[in-house]
Computed example of a mutant assay.
Amino acid sequence: MTWRDLFQRQTLKRHPTKRDAFRVLKEKGVPVKSVIDVGVLHGTPDLMWGYPDVPHLLIEPVADFASIITSRYEAAGVPHQLILAAASDTKGELTLHLKKDEAADITHARETAPADASADAGTVKVTARPLDDMLADLTLPTPHLLKIDVDGAELQVLKGAEKALESCSIVCIETGVSNLFKRSVPLVSAGFGLFDIVDLCYYDDRLAQVDLIFIRKQLIADLGIELFKDGFDDTLWQSL
């Protein structure tokens, strides 16, 4: 077989998006009994679409987003519980900087001020709690899918989620290219392996941001989904 033959046989079935990754993970039998969504903003459609029948624990510190979050999840029929707090590594109070887009809607809330002063929509003080403390008060079925998107404080969330990680089958975490390795190390150390890199974002033609999807290494072995476990099969190869 020539490389031309192989190229002509390729049909891209997979797409580097969270939605498609969650579809594949479900098809491969990776169990998820609940979703923990840290940094909800206005909702996470990919998780609502991928796991509509399991309870979603929604963690969002900005109270102004509560009504739109609740209305969207109720309209979609997704079981959910909303906690208005920031997941962090300590208890206390945080000051978040709000960012607005061109339409003047609040689009982000983070601990650092936006670089563009015109996008600064002020600050808000919020309660901060470790994720492990939040879960201690709840009975949430396991294993969890944990998604973290908090615009810069992802490491603090992971530090406050050591027990939660023990009950996770999947972790999806947003990262920039400059801190990709820093955010990967705690997950690899906790027994996870990288499954996919999705939702690639470019700035000035350079890769700037991605979402990393990890699954527990033991599940990779238990489900028999190791790469090349039966040798290399060129019919399974796909490329963009």
Rank of each mutant, 00 (worst) to 15 (best):
H108W: 06
L240G: 04
A208Y: 02
D116K: 10
Y73W: 03
K147T: 09
K217C: 01
P55R: 14
I69P: 13
C168I: 15
D20P: 06
A221D: 05
D116H: 09
D20N: 13
T44G: 01
I59N: 06
C172W: 00
A208W: 01
C201P: 00
E93M: 07
W49Q: 06
K99N: 08
E174C: 10
L47N: 08
F232Y: 07
E102N: 15
G224M: 14
R110N: 05
L158W: 03
Y202C: 00
V210S: 03
Y51K: 11
G176L: 04
F181D: 00
V54H: 07
T70D: 09
D53I: 12
G50M: 04
K159V: 02
Q156F: 15
W49I: 12
E154Q: 15
P61N: 08
F192D: 01
D204K: 12
V78K: 13
V177G: 00
V177D: 00
T11D: 04
P143V: 15
L194D: 03
I170P: 04
A85R: 11
D234V: 12
I215S: 05
Q209F: 02
K182M: 04
I173D: 09
A75Q: 03
D20W: 03
A103Q: 14
V40W: 04
E174W: 07
G160F: 07
E102I: 15
P45I: 10
D211I: 10
V35L: 13
D133K: 14
L165W: 02
E162G: 10
H97N: 04
S34E: 11
K125W: 01
G231N: 13
Y73F: 04
Q10D: 03
D196W: 03
K33F: 08
I225L: 06
C201D: 00
D101S: 14
I36H: 09
D204S: 03
L200E: 00
R110L: 08
D230P: 15
L25W: 02
A121T: 13
A113K: 08
V124H: 06
E74R: 13
Q238E: 08
P55S: 15
Y51T: 06
G193H: 03
V30F: 08
P141M: 15
A119D: 05
S178T: 11
C201R: 07
K163C: 14
L12T: 14
Q156L: 15
K217D: 00
G193L: 07
R129E: 10
R23M: 05
V171P: 04
F228S: 13
T2L: 06
G43N: 05
A21Y: 01
Y51N: 08
F22V: 14
F214K: 09
V126N: 11
E174G: 11
E154H: 14
L6A: 06
P31C: 10
V124T: 12
T107H: 03
A121P: 06
P130T: 15
Q81T: 13
V185W: 01
I173L: 13
I220N: 03
D133L: 14
P130E: 14
M1Q: 05
D196F: 03
F195A: 12
I170A: 05
P186K: 04
S178I: 10
R216H: 04
K159M: 08
K147P: 01
P31W: 02
D199N: 12
F22P: 02
L223A: 10
D233E: 08
K163V: 15
F22N: 02
R183D: 05
H108N: 10
